[in-house]
């Protein structure tokens, strides 16, 4: 079954496969910073070369009890439970935007602790359950 031609083709395919894996790996590696959709507050605090006034995205949880709504804008704190960034935004928020839920904010940093948002996206987590179950879980936690 494994005559010379077949062997040749196997080697050819393996070669192409390995070559393309290496190419894809290097492409992804060099693009790593661009593939990451958002950075967490901790990553922003740790990075030295953070660009201010430049479009970027940060993501994390909306801190509980941190949303304040005034006439012109809405302010809230994005946290990853280690570091926090205060976000200011004016506009409409998506339905799923709430305290204690995930959020991705598009905009720019004015300094390391203050972010001016131009768009808010709600990030849904991987938990799916009926409302009744959620109530039971909350009761048990309390």
């Amino acid at each position: 079954m494994l005559n010379k031609k077949v062997k040749k083709r196997i080697i050819f395919l393996t070669f192409i496969f390995l070559l393309s894996i290496v190419v894809v790996f290097f492409i992804l590696n060099s693009l790593n910073k661009n593939i990451v959709y958002f950075s967490s507050p901790t990553e922003i605090k740790q990075r030295e070369d953070i660009p201010f006034e430049k479009a970027m995205r940060i993501g994390g949880m909306v801190k509980k009890g941190s949303i304040t709504i005034s006439q012109k804008n809405i302010q809230f704190i994005v946290t990853d439970f280690e570091n926090e960034i205060l976000v200011s935004y004016s506009g409409t928020v998506p339905n799923l935007f709430a305290e204690g839920k995930g959020v991705v904010v598009e905009g720019s940093l004015s300094d390391k602790n203050f972010f001016i948002a131009s768009r808010i996206l709600a990030k849904h987590d991987e938990n799916y359950m009926p409302p009744e179950i959620k109530e039971i879980i909350e009761k048990n936690v309390k």
Binding site: H124, E126, M129
Partner: peptide
């Protein structure tokens, strides 16, 4: 890359709810 994109990088898309190993984070009724 599609399968593990949600684990390797931060994405807006949520990670997988149904796992082959370990418990799934989706309610049996769903």
């Amino acid at each position: 890359i599609i399968k593990y994109s949600v684990e390797w990088w931060t994405t807006l898309h949520q990670p997988a709810s149904i796992k082959i190993i370990g418990s799934s984070s989706i309610h049996p009724a769903m």
